[in-house]
Amino acid sequence: MISLVIADRCTGCQVCVRVCPTNVFDAVRGGPPVIARQQDCQTCFLCELYCQPDALYVDPDCETPAAVSAEEVERSGQRGRYRRDSGWDEWAGDPRYANEHWRMDQIFARARALS
């Protein structure tokens, strides 16, 4: 479930307000949006992909809201990790984060061969 808007990273662009499929955020003029309907969050992580300053943190528990601080997220190395691993924005073209989704069929075939 969406846990944090990290205020000192947020540029107030309101992109997350636009893209969240379940309309979790409310816009705030000139500032960080607020998480207005946390229980509506579908834990899809897509707001993180669209937040270029990496100011959002979605906890993977979709049933219970997590109490997590910006410092903990920072220490865990997870802030912005999903966007980076996906090779979005400034990470595009970086071979470390190349899109290898097409290998799925090979991977399924390896699993079949192993079983």
């Binding site: 691993d85 996906s86 290998r103």
Partner: peptide, 18 residues
């Protein structure tokens, strides 16, 4: 090793406290 390049979201529940 290449799981995150194939499916970047798959490991999120494990990487984030799992």
């Amino acid at each position: 090793e290449r799981l995150r390049r194939v499916q970047p979201n798959m490991m999120l529940p494990f990487d984030r406290g799992g």
